[in-house]
Design a protein around this nucleic acid. Structure first.
Lengths: 139, 139
DNA sequence: CTGCATCCAGATTGATACTG
DNA sequence: CAGTATCAATCTGGATGCAG
């Protein structure tokens, strides 16, 4: 039996996790909500700089369905909605550190340099232009 | 300063790792080469069941450029090329177990069931139809 | 303010056919 | 056997405009 069939349960589990954290904005959203535990839709949108309302909305709903984010409507004078990570959502933190550690090592492995230095400006431009600020041709 | 800017170096590191392991076939390829440490192009293609030669070729070259896979040409009577994980490629293993653990927990969290049972046949059909065998609407 | 609907562009993956 | 080239489909993310 092919390995890809025999190991399917394990690979599906890995893929499930990747599905939850893949995409252009999922990691940034999680990091924002980690650093600033409660944010409104507009605050999140400003933190994320170039995300569109449609995409932010879709991502937040996806994360809600996955129990990672809680959505709380505040009925003050003006309607606001507060988003925050659930306790379960915070279990992703350890995983993100593991991913970060490997990624930092990988930069060294591939480029021989200690870390990638990206200026604020370059990073903002990369976000706008929809280009990841990575070493061209590698990674 | 927006969180997404202030934390850019960390997020880039996470994204670097995700870029290396994301995509339909990267995880399956790594798992195949873990279970069977040396495989030819055709053997790999058979293990992966529905991958096309073009995609397999592109993925292997990408992984070679990232030092994860080594490519060795054997000049016997007939040309064969053996692929295997490098020592560096095997450093991904720990990460994959972390991803797998979270994914298994996630299934329980979302569906309330201990694990997803997918038959060989269903999994093969999903590979062919280009559909991940996941819970519809969730994950 | 908080989103949804529509339409659209670019990237990813695949099918098919062909080469050294 | 080990790929490459070309063309097509599908998927993701985005721009714009509108509504509760």
């Amino acid at each position: 039996m092919p390995v890809v069939i025999a190991c399917r349960q394990n690979m599906i589990a890995i893929q499930d996790t990747l599905d939850v954290i893949s995409g252009k904005w999922r990691i940034p959203i999680i990091v924002c909500l980690t650093m600033r535990p409660e944010l409104s839709f507009t605050e999140l949108k400003e933190e994320l700089v170039y995300i569109s309302a449609k995409v932010l909305s879709a991502e937040l709903r996806f994360m809600e369905e996955n129990n990672l984010v809680s959505r709380e409507v505040k009925k003050t004078t003006t309607l606001t909605v507060k988003y925050s990570l659930t306790a379960y959502g915070r279990t992703l933190e350890r995983l993100l550190f593991s991913l970060m550690d490997w990624g930092l090592t990988h930069r060294v492995q591939i480029t021989g340099k200690q870390a990638l230095e990206v200026s604020n400006e370059d990073y903002i431009n990369a976000l706008r232009a929809n280009l990841p600020p990575v070493v061209p041709g590698i990674v």
